[in-house]
Amino acid sequence: MILIISKNKEITTTEVIKWLLKMGKSFIRIHEDEVFDIKVKEKRIFLESYRNLFFLDDITSVWYRRGGLQFRQLQYENKQINLTMNEYQHWLEDYVRKTLESKKHINKESKNDINKLLVLEQAQKAGLEVPSYFLADTTKEVVLGRTIIKTICGNPRVDHITADSTATMYTKVVDQPENELFFPTFFQEKIEKDFEIRSFYLNGNIWSMAIFSQNDEQTQIDFRKYNLKRPNRNALYQLPDTIEQKIRMLMETLDLNCGSLDFIKSGSHYYFLEINPTGQFLGMSSICNYSLEKEIADYL
Rank of each mutant, 00 (worst) to 15 (best):
R224D: 02
K225I: 15
K225V: 15
L228A: 08
L228S: 10
K229A: 13
N232F: 08
R233E: 13
N234D: 11
N234L: 11
A235L: 11
L236Q: 12
L236C: 10
Y237T: 03
Y237Q: 06
L239D: 02
P240I: 08
P240H: 13
T242K: 13
I243D: 00
Q245M: 09
K246L: 04
I247N: 01
I247H: 03
I247S: 01
R248P: 02
L250I: 09
M251V: 03
L254P: 02
D255W: 03
L256W: 03
N257W: 08
G259S: 06
L261W: 05
L261E: 01
L261C: 04
L261R: 01
F263H: 05
I264E: 02
K265E: 04
G267H: 02
G267I: 06
Y271F: 14
F272C: 07
L273W: 05
N276A: 05
N276D: 12
G279M: 07
G279T: 05
Q280W: 15
L282H: 13
G283T: 15
S285A: 12
S285I: 06
S286R: 15
I287M: 05
I287R: 01
C288A: 13
C288N: 14
N289F: 09
N289W: 03
N289R: 15
S291Q: 11
S291G: 04
S291W: 11
S291P: 00
L292D: 01
L292H: 03
L292F: 07
L292M: 10
E293Y: 02
K294C: 07
A297H: 01
A297Y: 01
